[in-house]
């Protein structure tokens, strides 16, 4: 079997600035991108090519670091260095700013929706993670401020089907949170990376979590909470470390919910795809490099995202301002 990563289309997403992040809508028909130009762009397919459908400006005063779609696909949240998070509502083909979430002391680094769509998490350089509740009237209320990290929090991600939240930080650790009597608490701290943890991604079932770091490794963590049979803290253990593949900081990791392929975005300009050896021991899984584009972009790759509906379609974006749509194929 031969695998390959082929370039489908290159989009000059954010000219003369960085493209920090891309995010697919739940149906996989739209791609949102954001960057150092303070703008958000929405990309859609017209015929055989991807084109910019709309541009969301004036929402933020500074860099837009990350964007996230609500599970229903009708809302988009954007996290900015201006210390705010904007919620945009989709109206036909356009978006309007619905509300602005304020409270973080400085740069908001990431935003993520819970699978139910009723909760939103944000994290910031102010070391905190905030959980917001959304009601039927589109009102947002902060329900918890968690201060488990000792440094800048880089990323937050929700479990695919539970109300379990994970965060990654400049303090080299990953924290897992659950609600307990209306209060969100850190229930596990995953230690192992030796530098900043930049990105996190759960697998389809939510049994495992991939993390990527400035230490140039990717780690796979597995949930062993149930085996302990107690209601207390969560128990996640590192079962695999992918080292030696990345030349510089790994800025993002994406676990495909459709195929189980693991993609990484690296500061050495490369995009790589790893596949799990299906015959390996689940407690000691083996991942091997399946395909790579070593000079995918001309500068650091900041983000990789698998299309949630179309098998093998991957988007990446870079400091060079470009977005690339790739096709990862198992066989040629």
């Amino acid at each position: 079997m031969k695998e390959a990563l082929t370039l489908v289309q290159r989009l000059n997403g954010h000219p003369d600035s960085r493209c920090w992040f891309v995010s697919w809508s739940p149906t996989g028909t739209l791609l949102a991108s954001c960057g150092g130009d303070k703008a958000i762009r929405i990309w859609g397919r017209e015929g055989d090519s991807w084109v910019c459908k709309s541009m969301l400006q004036d929402g933020h005063q500074r860099t837009v670091r990350k964007v996230a779609w609500s599970p229903c696909g009708n809302y988009l949240a954007s996290a900015s260095f201006d210390a705010t998070t904007c919620i945009w509502k989709k109206k036909n083909d356009d978006f309007e700013s619905l509300t602005v979430l304020e409270g973080h002391e400085n740069e908001v680094k990431c935003v993520a929706w819970a699978p139910s769509g009723n909760l939103l998490a944000t994290c910031s350089r102010d070391k905190s993670v905030w959980v917001w509740e959304v009601d039927e009237e589109d009102e947002y209320e902060c329900v918890t401020v968690i201060n488990s990290h000792t440094q800048d929090v880089k990323h937050v991600v929700w479990h695919p089907n539970q109300e379990l939240l994970a965060s990654a930080s400049y303090d080299n650790n990953i924290c897992l949170y659950k609600e307990d009597d209306d209060d969100w608490e850190c229930r596990a701290t995953l230690q192992g990376h030796t530098s900043t943890v930049w990105g996190l991604s759960f697998d389809a079932a939510g049994q495992r979590l991939a993390s990527c770091s400035d230490d140039r490794t990717v780690k796979i963590w597995k949930d062993y909470s149930n085996e302990r049979g107690e209601a207390g803290d969560l128990s996640w253990k590192c079962v695999c470390t992918l080292s030696g593949f990345h030349g510089r900081t790994v800025y993002d990791v994406a676990w495909c919910r459709l195929t189980g392929a693991l993609a990484t975005a690296c500061g050495d300009d490369g995009v790589r795809v790893f596949k799990e050896d299906e015959t390996s021991d689940p407690d000691q899984p083996v991942f091997s490099l399946s395909a790579q584009a070593t000079k995918a972009h001309t500068q650091d790759v900041n983000c990789v995202a698998w299309n949630p509906k179309e098998v093998g379609v991957l988007a990446s974006c870079s400091d060079d301002g470009d977005i690339i749509i790739w096709r990862f194929q198992e066989e040629i």
């Binding site: 960085r18 860099t63 670091r65 260095f81 400049y170 530098s195 400035d214």
Partner: peptide, 15 residues
């Protein structure tokens, strides 16, 4: 060294 290597923090500082 860690702060200087963190391009996100450098980008924020320069804004």
């Amino acid at each position: 060294n860690k702060q200087l290597a963190d391009k996100e923090r450098v980008a924020a500082a320069l804004e």
